[in-house]
């Protein structure tokens, strides 16, 4: 039996756009594995777009958040607007002096980061949970054209010399607020883009429109493996 997004209680805000794609299970949800046309691996290396919205993410904020996350085995970026890849493929983004955003790993289908959201308890320490699963969508813009694509949508210089690996920008792209992190997956150049979940359909279209002149198209998870 083939998978359908409707079989899962958690669905990407973009799932209706992936109706014809082949899906794979991803933890308690699903992800596009391929669109069944052409060489998606080559497309991802050049200019590809992948919907990672069903992968776990969560934030923590407060004066005690750094100590809390370090005690749970995370390495934290030294300054705001930087990101650090963890040994298991999770990513920690530092959004301000006292706010962190955790992005789940494809290796464990986000299980560790999903567990962080469940493990947090409200008490009198200043460490507050920021649920991000249902507030943001998570898109992956991959390939060598990523900076040129974003230059059409965003005022911040995202070329590698100005925005090296591990950089984070909180800015506006295609007129909506976004968080952009330069975090390659292995050798593949990747910009991880988080935007308002309710605007994901619009932003997906805006990105594809900008990617068109570079021959960019959506890709599935198989293209990254």
């Amino acid at each position: 039996m083939s998978l359908h997004a409707e079989h899962f209680s958690e669905r990407s805000p973009l799932y209706r756009l992936h109706q014809d794609a082949q899906l794979n299970a991803l933890g308690d949800s699903c992800i596009v594995s391929n669109y069944g046309a052409g060489d998606e691996r080559a497309r991802a290396a050049h200019c590809g777009l992948l919907d990672l919205s069903n992968l776990a993410r969560v934030g923590f904020r407060g004066a005690a958040s750094a100590a809390y996350l370090e005690a749970r085995g995370y390495q934290l970026p030294a300054v705001p607007n930087q990101a650090l890849s963890q040994a298991d493929g999770s990513q920690v983004l530092r959004m301000s002096q006292a706010e962190y955003l955790l992005l789940g790993s494809l290796q464990d289908t986000g299980a560790r980061v999903r567990q962080e959201e469940l493990a947090w308890q409200f008490d009198d320490t200043p460490n507050y949970l920021l649920p991000r699963q249902d507030s943001h969508a998570w898109l992956l813009l991959s390939g060598t054209c990523q900076a040129e694509v974003m230059a059409k949508l965003c005022g911040v210089d995202l070329r590698a010399e100005a925005f090296p690996v591990g950089s984070v920008a909180q800015t506006s792209a295609a007129r909506i607020n976004v968080i952009i992190a330069n975090l390659p997956l292995g050798e593949l150049p990747c910009l991880h883009i988080l935007c308002d979940r309710a605007s994901a359909d619009y932003f997906w279209g805006a990105l594809l429109d900008a990617m068109q002149e570079f021959g960019g198209q959506p890709v599935g998870l198989d293209a990254l493996r």
Binding site: P80, N81, S96, G155, V156, A169, Q170, T171, S172
Partner: peptide, 17 residues
């Protein structure tokens, strides 16, 4: 566009503020 230097994020278009 007018640019404002944000103490946290650096120079940004004024429309972001």
């Amino acid at each position: 566009m007018k640019i404002m230097p944000c103490p946290l994020n650096g120079p940004r278009n004024i429309s972001e503020f």
